[in-house]
């Protein structure tokens, strides 16, 4: 049952992605932009311009360009062959570049979510169990603060406080000290690569350098998570089945587990949506802390009118988001039998 659901959803996702590919491909070509002169300069001779236009493939009619993008030409295999094309800026394959930048972002936001969920869930539960208590009041004050400013401003404040004033955190210099040799590229996530290379020192250094960006992101993310968990748990505790469980003399441990299970399902959706959003949305944090992740790559490509790279990024983010939503739905279905799949 769940397999059939997953397959069906994957098929639907494929259709969605196809529509998206078409839309993105033609929409960026509708932009009032001239990528060719960006590469050859405004003063280039008409011949040089024509040559550049040809080498970028922009001399062909849009439909033929799309055909090349899908099915490739003499040099490339195209999207059906699994290739996103070659970046106009760097001249290397978009696949490879995404392969390099995506894990950086995933690492950053995964670690941030682990912390945000790890703290947000217990705090939310405490707030619900003991309304008006310390955890609840703290959440309220924190909510007023955290929600009042965007995440990049918190990033800057944290850098100022912890690096400039207190000097207890590293500067915003990326994922490692510039003097350290990074471990061999395996997964692209530096903490994992360090462990794979057997370098615990690099692993710890990476965590150290990532601590401020993670602190910033998890600080902002835990707000909605705490609120959601608090509301759900509070609602569950008032539910008839909890009262009945008490009347049936079930021990407190079992009752607590019952409440969490019922409350967690809706919170899961929120976490998934936030995660999907953050793949592209962490860009400001990446910029502030000089972490070259997918968001940075996307901005760079857009500013440079690097069409193949833009297409690649949009496709990657959409595909990942679809997969995450699917994963949430499958988890929901496993957790809650009322969700029909």
């Amino acid at each position: 049952m769940i397999w059939r659901f997953t397959l069906r959803r994957l098929a639907v996702g494929l259709v969605q992605l196809s529509v998206l590919i078409v839309a993105v491909f033609f929409l960026i070509r509708l932009l009032p932009a001239d990528p060719v002169s960006r590469f050859v300069g405004l003063n280039a001779s008409p011949e040089a311009y024509a040559l550049a236009e040809q080498s970028l493939g922009l001399d062909l009619p849009a439909l033929e360009q799309f055909e090349v993008f899908l099915f490739g030409d003499d040099e490339e295999v195209g999207l059906v062959g699994g290739e996103l094309g070659t970046s106009w800026v760097t001249g290397s394959s978009v696949n490879q570049e995404i392969r390099q930048y995506l894990p950086v972002t995933l690492e950053l936001i995964t670690l941030s979510f682990l912390i945000a969920v790890g703290l947000g869930v217990p705090i939310g539960v405490l707030g619900a169990v003991n309304p008006g208590g310390a955890a609840d009041k703290g959440t309220l004050i924190y909510g007023l603060f955290a929600g009042s400013q965007p995440e990049f401003s918190w990033g800057i404040i944290f850098i100022f406080v912890f690096f400039v004033v207190l000097g207890i955190a590293p500067g915003p210099l990326g994922r490692l000290s510039p003097l350290t040799d990074p471990p061999d590229f395996v997964t692209g996530a530096i903490t994992i690569d360090a462990l794979l290379a057997g370098r615990v020192d690099i692993f710890l250094e990476a965590l150290w350098y990532l601590s401020l960006p993670i602190l910033t992101l998890s600080f902002v993310l835990s707000g909605p998570i705490i609120k959601m968990v608090r509301e759900n748990v509070a609602q569950t505790m008032n539910a008839d089945f909890m009262f009945y469980g008490q009347a049936a003399g079930l021990p407190r441990g079992i009752l607590a587990r019952d409440a969490l299970r019922a409350a967690f399902a809706p919170a899961l959706t929120l976490i998934g949506i936030l995660f999907g959003f953050m793949i592209g949305g962490a860009v400001l944090i990446e910029s502030i802390f000089s972490i070259s992740g997918l968001g940075q790559y996307a901005i760079r490509s857009i500013l440079a009118f690097d069409y193949p790279a833009i297409q690649g990024v949009v496709l990657t983010i959409s595909a990942l988001t679809l997969l995450i939503y699917l994963a949430i739905d499958v988890c929901q279905a496993l957790l809650d039998p009322r969700v029909s799949v």
Partner: peptide, 25 residues
């Protein structure tokens, strides 16, 4: 001690059986 007596010696059934049972078990 009350937990022991509830459900073992004194049991309850309520008006809304569908909401009194946990939806996920």
């Amino acid at each position: 001690e009350l937990e022991d007596i509830r459900g073992r010696d004194i049991a309850l059934i309520v008006q809304n059986p569908r909401s009194a049972l946990h939806p996920m078990y």
